[in-house]
Nucleic acid binder design. Structure first.
Ligand SMILES: [Mn+2]
Ligand SMILES: [Mn+2]
Ligand SMILES: [Mn+2]
Ligand SMILES: [Mn+2]
Lengths: 218, 218
DNA sequence: GAATATTTTTAGGTAAACCTAAATTTTATT
DNA sequence: AATAAAATTTAGGTTTACCTAAAAATATTC
């Protein structure tokens, strides 16, 4: 069965929202895709006809088993290409999302099979997100928000979320990247900033803004 | 300036037809693209408005300087991806065209820059066709049709054209590939087959059908 | 050079993916 | 429970890229 680029983007986005919010609404999806609610409604009907989502008018919706499988395939393609861009072409992690957003729609299954093998079947993309394997299985690693981590406990950064701006400059300045070991010494409620401590470096203050996008293993 | 996937395909195809026929007509383009003449006319008007082609109704048309530049960029992307698919992912030369047909439309310039560097700035794609460099320059190597080559003269295969079917099986059977040294002993006008001689192999007969798609340096 | 054939364009449609504005349904508030 | 607010859908457009069938222009043939 053929799915258009738009259909793939919708399915993938439903998958992501479902993963973090548990439930998906027309407006949430419209927001995530930068589209208007009316456009989303139209597409929802199309996706339902293709048996990719469970949808009743005016109600929240969810992916069907099939929809989930397709979503995982697109996510797999996206993350494998991101891995390729960073580890083979030398891009930095914050530059690859938009390119992968296009490459994820190249349709050849054989291509992805071979790409995966060529990259050594990586389990995580450059942002620390798990790459679904051929069967859609994800290596489950808990991503704990740095803002919620217990005080004075050493943790390891395992994921960084891109948020539009150029947060990566800041992270580079602090020398925080995936694999960095650090602990949170204090949390300042006033501006929700944190004092963190990294090996061989004096304690540093980071804003809640940044901390929100840093995840780690406890 | 943005060009859609369709616009890129049209421009590239005009470039190819121009290269072999010298001149491009609505019907020729429609045939090459698998579209109807009416659709082509419509697109021609769009391409003219974008100053990519020189076009007068009912007349043959040609690429403008800008059109040529864009065409070369798409050709460059196509052939670099083909090279990647064969030399990095292990595809065989006859499997890569359709995949590259999709990948050539990924828009990032930086991506192609880096891909080129990663591949070692190759000058020829897996079919033996030259890859335009960043400035659109092509390494000119004369591709002589094996059917036209002088008799009893050793030549080297430098290009193989894919023609839908599975000619590659035949070529593999004869062990003919890019780089193969051979000479044409005889030409049989009756069915336009050729007797060829390769190093360390007894003479063999190949059909005109196949020979037409083999090119070499004299 | 007129008649015929071929090529190309125009006219009029369709489907996908978007949009705005208005109507409808659901949810929240008094 | 009635009303107000918010979310969602429907109605009616637009643009892109296709299509078929008919008309117009160009080329070929007698
Ligand atoms: Mn995408
Ligand atoms: Mn990622
Ligand atoms: Mn293409
Ligand atoms: Mn090629």
């Amino acid at each position: 069965m053929y799915f258009s680029e738009s259909e793939e983007n919708y399915i993938k986005e439903i998958y992501h929202i479902q993963a973090v919010q548990g439930t998906v609404s027309t407006n949430a999806l419209a927001g995530a895709l930068g589209a208007r609610a009316a456009s989303v409604t139209e597409m929802l009907k199309k996706l339902q006809k293709k048996k990719l989502i469970n949808y009743k008018p005016y109600k929240n919706f969810s992916l069907t088993e099939l929809g989930n499988r397709i979503a995982l395939e697109v996510v797999r393609k996206h993350r494998l290409w991101e891995y390729f861009l960073v580890h083979k072409l030398g891009f930095s992690w914050h530059e690859v999302h938009d390119i992968a957003e296009e490459m994820e729609h190249v349709s050849s299954r054989e291509l992805i099979q071979r790409l995966d093998h060529y990259l050594g079947s990586p389990a995580f993309d450059p942002h620390g997100d798990p790459i679904p394997d051929k069967n859609g299985k994800l290596k489950a690693v808990k991503q704990n928000r740095l803002t919620d981590v217990p005080l004075r406990k050493w943790v390891i950064v395992n994921a960084l979320k891109e948020q539009g701006g150029n947060m990566h400059q800041l992270l580079k300045h602090y020398d925080i990247h995936i694999g960095t070991r650090l602990k949170v010494n204090k949390r300042f409620d006033f501006d929700s900033s944190l004092e963190i401590k990294m090996d061989k470096l004096p304690p540093a203050i980071i804003s809640g803004e940044v901390a929100k996008n840093i995840y780690c293993t406890i």
